[in-house]
């Protein structure tokens, strides 16, 4: 098995005459937590949608766990969709199903022969694994708070024990305590289950706390990938503004990172 989980080469996405991506290359290593940052409208979500096959790219090649997205599946090959989990921004829970039923949907889809009791058991431990109380399984999404919805969405994303987890702004809309708890949960699951995590986020605390590497989207491509100190060693103004702004400095200080770059010491 190659140690690259996602390999994107020459990706281009056009909407009409507007190009969102042009010649975008990115590699996500197996077992890492990769944070993706970028200004509004730089196509972070479009990138994620392209990887998970919801958006047909205009050009380029995307390989996930050794499978090319959009290519015909070889006979006998496991559906790649059973090997990843996706947490959408609002949770995207099916509103007519309870949380436990939401978690069971992918299991039922891919393993219809599994005994109902076992499916219930799996749903139960997934729900509690994501830090929800036991009783939450029987509740409908409309009865949950925003943070609980995200956890329930995560439980559904983890239903099939995926190797790869996509998170779209997991901490957006959560209070600082909830956001920190969600970061811890992501880290813990990443370590326990050996997940590779592809995470779009704007949360500087999350980037500092749990991301192994950060990819920066700008100018229609990935302009830099690396740890935060590595990124700051580049001289791209946007990166310095992003990590060196007041919020970025606060986050860096609280995670005890020594960031002696000109942009920071000047401020």
């Amino acid at each position: 098995m190659s140690d690259i989980a996602i390999r994107i080469t020459g990706l281009a996405n056009h909407f009409g005459s507007h190009a969102v991506h042009q010649g975008l290359d990115l590699e996500v290593r197996r077992g890492e937590i990769l944070g993706v940052v970028g200004g509004s409208g730089t196509g972070k979500s479009v990138l994620m949608r392209s990887i998970i096959g919801l958006q047909q790219p205009s050009e380029g090649r995307i390989e996930v766990l050794g499978h090319e997205i959009g290519a015909e599946r070889a006979p006998g090959d496991v559906d790649i969709r059973s090997r990843w989990g996706v947490l959408f921004q609002g949770g995207a829970l099916f509103s007519t199903l309870t949380v436990a039923e939401n978690v069971e949907v992918p299991i039922k889809e891919f393993y219809p022969d599994m005994a109902v009791e076992l499916r219930h058991e799996i749903a139960r431990y997934k729900v509690t694994l994501t830090g929800l109380p036991d009783e939450a399984g029987a509740k409908y999404p409309s009865e949950l708070s925003g943070g609980m919805k995200k956890r329930a969405g995560l439980a559904r994303a983890l239903a099939l024990d995926p190797e790869l987890l996509f998170l779209d702004e997991p901490t957006a809309g959560l209070d600082p305590i909830g956001a920190a708890a969600f970061d811890d949960l992501t880290r813990e699951l990443h370590e326990t289950l050996g997940l590779t995590v592809f995470m779009i986020t704007h949360d500087l605390d999350t980037l500092h706390a749990i991301c192994d590497r950060v990819a920066v989207l700008a100018e229609k491509r990935v302009i830099a990938v690396g740890t935060i100190p590595e990124l700051l060693a580049t001289d791209h103004p946007w990166i310095h503004e992003y990590f060196g702004g007041p919020r970025g400095r606060m986050a860096a200080v609280s995670y005890g990172e020594a960031l002696d770059t000109p942009a920071l010491t000047k401020a």
Binding site: T98, A100, H120, A123, R124, Y125, K126, T128, L129, P133, D134, E135, G137, A138, K139, Y140, T192, L193
Partner: peptide, 19 residues
């Protein structure tokens, strides 16, 4: 061992279906 330790904490008795 690690996985079993994880799921062991997650067993519960609350009903999974609404009453």
């Amino acid at each position: 061992e690690r996985l079993i330790a994880t799921v062991k904490q997650c067993s519960g008795e609350a009903p999974m279906a609404p009453p």
